[in-house]
Nucleic acid binder design. Sequence first.
DNA 1: TCTGGGGTCCTAGGACCC
DNA 2: TCTGGGGTCCTAGGACCC
Length: 414
Amino acid sequence: MGKQDGRERQVTVGVIDSSTAPILHVDMDAFFASVELLDHPELVGKPVIVGHNSPRSIVTAATYEARKFGVNSALPMAIALRRCPQAIILEPHYERYQHYSKQVFSICDELTPAVERLGIDEAFLDVSGARSLFGSPQQVAELLRARVRAETGLVCSVGAAATKYVAKVASGLSKPDGLLVIPRDETVAFLHPLPINKLWGVGAKTEEVLRARGFSTIGQIAHADVDTLRRAVGDSGARRLHDLAWGRDDRVVHAGAEEKSVGHEVTFSTDVTDAGDLRRELLRLSNMVAVRLRRHGVLTRTVVLKLRYDDFTTITRSRTIAEPTDLGKIVYDEVRSILESEWAGRPVRLIGVRGEQLVHPDGVAPALWDDAADWREAESVMDAASDRFGRGAVRPAALLGHRATERPRLGQRD
DNA sequence: TCTGGGGTCCTAGGACCC
DNA sequence: TCTGGGGTCCTAGGACCC
């Protein structure tokens, strides 16, 4: 499905001058679900849901056949199955998605050096310098879509516009399997009839606030009284929404942006009240964070513990440490000590560890003596062993013998 | 209907320094 | 004795996005 839509749109843009629309937004269609269908061709055309089939799970991705029943990402699995009982549920396979993601991004990289990744299945491209090699923005977009389809078997949608924001809206409206070009001088006419939730940064809460004040379209935001808007969403929010509503967005495509934090968290299948269980999970998460820090070659200055209690209230407690670290033991010592001062026995639904304020080792003065040297050596050995024998091949002794009982009862794995 | 896991950005208050 | 304003860092929470 969607093929016809795509073809019609390509025809409608065939006569358009796309030279004023050099920012492309590429978005894979139903990405995880589509990858699963490559591995299960017999399920093509059926309602397929990707996600864990357990009580506290949510839908990770759904095919368009499943979406017809009102099944979308982030919907609780229980509700999804009520809406679409015949749906086929597939467990996610993140390594597969990563693999296809790399393929798609490397196609992008071959078309322009200005590629900014957004998560696993989206990117912005600035193709203003690609004209002599590959043609107009529209021609680059068509080439990109054709190559993605030919080389991966997957389908993507592309929006082309003068700004990132408009390109993103355009790709969304062209889905599935579409291409939509919005030349600069058509920007305002394109935006103004759209509903306010198409504004970047307007989610459920802000939409409610804006609707309560009588705003329902982007055009109304554009022509709004500034003070009314300011009272609704604050000073900077008002300015941002007003600019977006006129298509003003000066953010450039930023290639090679670095991550600003790394974290892991897990929701237990049943709430946890045992301190030992929490500590063991904390150790596991701390080590996962540390592995990623070392892999990125960065150190964290601020360690964050996150707890969600049984009533869904969520707290975060952070601590900035004297000596930035990439060691699981140091991260663990910090979050465990925060847990001890913060947690009084309330049932815990979710626990998480995050490292913020990432710095490069060169940016900090090397310590004259290094107490952590032994630990660094030990954990490097573990990294090497994990690379050779697979994740989980080596783990701290405190986690040994607990695997069956203390692994998260609802995790990324089956 | 009951809510995952990975992130980013913004706000706001308090500490601290000049 | 009572009183400034600006700048920066740290912390906590919340909205939002994919």
